[in-house]
Design a protein around this nucleic acid. Sequence first.
DNA 1: GCCGTTTTCGGCCCGACTGTTTTCAGTCG
Length: 627
Amino acid sequence: MTNQEIARLLRQIAAAYLLKQENRFKIIAYERAAETIQKSNIEVKDLWEAGKLSSLAGIGRAISSHLDELFRTGRVKHFNQVLTGLPKAIFPLLDIPGFGPKKAYKLVSELKLVNPHTVINDLLGAARKGKIAPIAGFGDKSQQYIIEALQRFKQGQTKERRMPLPYAYNIATNIISYLKQHQSVVRAIPLGSLRRMVATIGDIDIAVASKNPEKVIDWFLEYPKIKKILEKGSSGASILLENGQQIDLRVQSPDNFGAMLQYFTGSKNHNIHLREFALKKGLSLSEYGIKLLKRSQKSTHSASSGREVKSQKYNEKLKIFEFASEKDFYHALGLPWIPPELREDSGEIEAALRQASYDKHHNGQDKYPGLPKLVELQDIKGDLHIHSDYNLLPSHDLGESSLKEILDQAVKLGYQYIGLSDHNPSYTNHTSYRIIDIIKRRRYYFEQNLKSTKSTRVNLFIMLEVDILSNGQLAIPEKAFEYLDAVIVSVHSSFAMSKEKMTRRIINGLNHSKAKILAHPTGRLIGKREAYEIDIDKLFSYCCENKKALEINAYPDRLDMPDTLVHEAIKKGVKFVIGTDSHKAQQMDLMKYGISVARRGWAQSSDILTTLPYNKIKTWLSGEEVK
DNA sequence: GCCGTTTTCGGCCCGACTGTTTTCAGTCG
């Protein structure tokens, strides 16, 4: 059973409880569990096998035991009891935007719709005949809305479409630099999943701080690539670009920018947790600022842990504290500022609290307990996963840039070193002898070329990206390794394998003394291909024990490993390298997306080996102890 | 049903929007 199916089932249970007027917090608990599972990058079934279901937020004893029953027997007795007595036809309707349990139940019972397989069409028919408007609580407008919603649903527009991060990032960057040309724009920052640098983005929202909202909005609406203006208000506007992308703009006064930025950055779960936390201090949070609840005698100042809150201002009329900066908003809660990439309610609020108490007491704990000091782009000293245009008759795609172009780019990026990791020569089309010969010539070619270029400031590792064949063997003969400084290994074929077999295969491939890095470890392609099955804990332990690194592949539709797995791995002490997998020199700029994955996985520079200077990375690649 | 600066019992986020309402219910993010 997939995560999506499990999430859907739990939502159905929540809906059933709602209709049966169960305790509303029980309903919220089921919805929360569904949400967590839906967003999890880790298969819930894998967690179950590892006995770690409760590690997911919102999954406690009861739901764990129900899921256990589900995986063991394929059904849950308790769930079936909860669902009895409710018309089955309501559940398909819950997938339609705008339909909740109450509306679905009322329509299904009033119109006596019984067949879950035909309910969509049945309801559409009833609506068109005008049978919905007379039902109490409905009217002409809602009837019309239902018709439209059902038609959209039938056309398959139910699922939100998400685009890869780099695509959204580029669009937003262009608009932001356009906005900043206007003198009334004090700050312009992307919001939501884009600011948190999530691998896929739904909407593009942009926040602007300005004292002249009207001027900013007019300027925004003059953006050259607009196809249509969707909405224009006093504090924001929405446009549709020629490429079909919708952009929402929100303008807020600079004095009151902090709470708004915090609120719209999310994530939803982070905000919920933060508001629950604030509530215990007698503070109520919203996009407008911080309110004192009546039962609290404290001011927001006393809630802080000695951190200065510079930009706080009390708005008498609204009885709310306003903040110019997001930092001060967090400080007013007694917390250090939390980087957006961490705001997923995956332990960051707890870590921020530990940090606050540590900063306050300096209680000499030997291990710093707070938020990680996240790795940054400028910490990166090199890129080991670059494909050149040297034609070694590979089985996969060749790069497009020459050694010189790659070296020039590396100089531009301030790198100390790069690794040329072309794909291995085709394994099926050549004899072993020929493969060895190709790899030998390639080494000679690069060495000669390096001597003749002036960019000797950049050091070169002559590497290779070698396929791990389905039997676990590497796709080049043993003798060819003599001509390579180290290799990256990866899976490019036979993705459908049992978990045990795939795990054995990959560990086998990594086991060669020159194999140092596993590239794109899960094999996923965002929106195109699911990850292959692999025993991730086994892989993590193997890497720790044998000093192998996993790659964070920065290529836009890979971003692999995914951030949540990076977080898991780092907790266990696994080391990473960030590779761009560039096939053109300009693509070496993709490093920032790899950095965003690392940061979302709580990585510090000590977790990323390519932050090491040349001498140390050389030592590590050669298999010696790094001091 | 979940979960824990203190609390293994007793709490549980906040506001906007929409449509039907005449003061609110449902849904959404």
